[in-house]
Design a protein around this nucleic acid. Structure first.
Length: 554
RNA sequence: GCCCUCGUAGCUCAGCUGGAUAGAGCAUACGCCUUCUAAGCGUACGGUCGAGCGUUCGAGUCGCCCCGAGGGCGCCA
């Protein structure tokens, strides 16, 4: 067991034994103080207990200090500081033991059973299959992907789902657009629908259809042609979206089609269920959901007076279907412009008898693409929104992913394309990747392979201890990131770990023939760091290159 | 008008259930390759945490109010 775990379990036991309080998971926490004059680890436990026990924190701290010293041999010294912090100094070899742990666990280091197998369903991106993904989708896509990686690592059972919004008028418009483009190709007069799709992708798809079936769709009745083209276009656009997402490192486990949900009768069924439960009423020829009774500010229309469902209705069926498949927690990543939609969906789930507290909506704030201080809304090449693919080709996959993941999802962020492009070498992602390449280089040149050891007694400098402590904290960071669904915590961690490594590298020589014992211990430390860094980068979907060469262009 | 998110260093952003002297990166200045990758290390500079009031042992963090930015208030999706 690692020292931190021992410390926490012992502290918890003391709280129970001595004060008769049953500590919850969040009561006892330790942290690595910013200033290591405050020890290797520190806890504010005494201050937290002061409210429950109504005693001075210093008194409580003094009692805990005695208990710890008598129970844990790894603890070398304890000081009580400031308003009642308990600061621990740990025996150096006890800290270094984590190396064996990391090497033994390899790719699994950082994993935990924090999530206890709870079934999560994450729905994100979910863009209409009517055109290419653009850079507005890029943030949510990579965030959802990384969250899924983190949740799995922390022991949650996470499923990644894409809801294909393919049943509404927009797919029909795609069909009309394709029909027009085909007519255009054959020199016939044509009109693009006003709400149609005018991007180059539609022209390309029209060409592919013509290659395949020539003018067939002009020989059948227009209505039938448009309907068939809509279906074909939807499939082809969806294939392109899947390809782009894969290009971006984002895989999905499940693709749910709105059209399929409709065809299974789920939408009619849920409307019937809501009506039977008295959750609806008719007014002005439309069917309304009594959303105000469940916390929304207005009642919402389920079926319009023209007989068609609103966007909300199939989505209610979609969410109900998620619960019915046994998912315990539903996570949705929505654009910030959808925030008004949250109370609506929660109200619907609550009304249907589901626990709406387990429906979590993470809002993704808008990204402003900027070039030299001027907002860029359109791609210069196509005149349309900048696509995901253009963005990746422009600044690189790793940089694109890392940039979006390093900022909190709800922060409005400014993406300066010029800066991302021109300062490629100063990008934080290279800092971390360079650390990885440097470690690999040292390991390649070593005469022996890194080995676990019974005890590490020579890793005693501040640089080594800092590195060890941060390697050691990785599983906790992953667990925290999973609980708060925040990949940016992993980015912060990666930066810090890389920084501790680079600093260590600058002052400690690893491969030293004159000092083989120390060399062996440092090699093992590097191997543990390498594994940790690799696993952390994997959670971000960023590559861990074994070699990096600086380009000669600068 | 109402609702949501945000406001922290010149710039881009961290800051964990309220905790020790508010932190990084970039930019700026000065050092460091006859040591394993200088895409690096070290030092310095830089802040009345948008303004004010309140809650308490303690507030960047919680509450109220004001100012500013973005978004939402459809029988659109």
């Amino acid at each position: 067991m690692k020292v931190e775990e021992k410390l926490i379990t012992t502290l918890k036991r003391i709280v129970t034994d001595k004060y008769g309080i049953d500590p919850d998971d969040r009561m006892v926490m330790i942290e690595i103080p910013k200033d290591n004059a405050n020890g290797d680890y520190s806890t504010n436990l005494a201050m937290r207990l002061t409210k429950l026990l109504r005693r001075r924190p210093q008194e409580i701290a003094a009692e805990i200090k005695e208990e710890i010293l008598s129970r844990l041999s790894e603890v070398e010294n304890i000081e009580i500081a400031g308003p009642g912090f308990i600061n621990f100094w740990i025996r150096k070899d006890a800290i270094a033991n984590v190396i064996n742990n990391v090497i033994a666990q390899g790719d699994n280091y950082g994993h935990s059973n924090t999530g206890k197998g709870v079934k999560y369903l994450e729905e994100y991106v979910s863009a209409n299959p009517t055109g290419p993904l653009h850079c507005g989708h890029a943030r949510g896509a990579v965030w959802g992907d990384s969250c899924a990686r983190i949740l799995k690592a922390a022991g949650y059972d996470a499923t990644r789902e894409y809801y294909i919004n393919d049943a509404g008028a927009q797919i029909h418009n795609l069909g009309l657009s394709l029909y027009a483009r085909i007519r255009e190709h054959f020199g016939l007069n044509f009109t693009l629908p006003e709400d149609g799709y005018h991007g180059p992708d539609v022209i390309e798809i029209a060409k592919e259809i013509i290659d395949d079936s020539n003018d067939y769709y002009l020989t059948i009745p227009e209505e039938e042609a448009v309907e068939k083209l809509a279906e074909i276009g939807r499939n082809m656009e969806l294939e392109r979206i899947k390809k782009d997402l894969r290009y971006y490192g984002c895989e999905f486990d499940s693709w749910i089609s709105e059209k399929w949900i409709v065809s299974q009768g789920m939408v009619d069924a849920v409307v019937a269920e809501m009506t039977a439960k008295g959750l609806t009423y008719e007014q002005d020829d439309a069917l309304w959901f009594k959303a105000t009774e469940y916390g929304d500010e207005k009642d919402r229309v389920l079926r319009k007076s023209n007989g068609l469902y609103t966007y909300l209705t199939p989505d209610i069926a979609n969410h109900k279907y998620k619960y019915d498949r046994g998912y315990e927690v539903l996570v949705n990543i929505w654009g910030a412009d959808h925030h008004g939609y949250i109370p609506r969906m929660k109200a619907a789930m609550k009304a249907l008898g589901y626990n709406s507290d387990n429906l979590l909506i993470d809002l993704c704030q808008m990204v402003r693409m900027v070039e030299n201080g001027v907002e860029v809304k359109m791609s210069k090449r196509t005149g349309n929104a900048i696509t995901l693919r253009e963005l990746i080709d422009d600044i690189g996959l790793d940089a694109a992913r890392y940039f979006f993941l390093s900022k909190a999802l709800d922060s409005h962020l400014e993406f300066d394309l010029g800066l991302a492009r021109s300062q490629t070498n100063d990008n934080p992602v290279y800092y971390a990747q360079y650390a990885y390449a440097r470690i690999c280089s040292v390991l390649r040149q070593a005469e022996t392979k890194p080995q676990p050891k019974d005890s590490f007694s020579l890793l005693t400098t501040a640089k080594e201890i800092d590195l060890l402590k941060h390697v050691s904290s990785f599983p906790d960071v992953v667990a925290d990131a999973a609980i708060s669904r925040a990949p940016n915590l992993i980015c912060n961690y990666v930066q810090k770990l890389a920084s501790y490594f680079h600093s260590f590298y600058g002052s400690c020589k690893v491969n030293d023939k004159d000092n083989p014992e120390l060399s062996a211990e440092r090699l093992a430390l590097l191997e543990a760091t390498r594994i940790t860094l690799k696993n952390a980068l994997y959670l971000l979907g960023v590559s861990a290159p074994e070699k990096m060469v600086k380009s000669e262009s600068e």
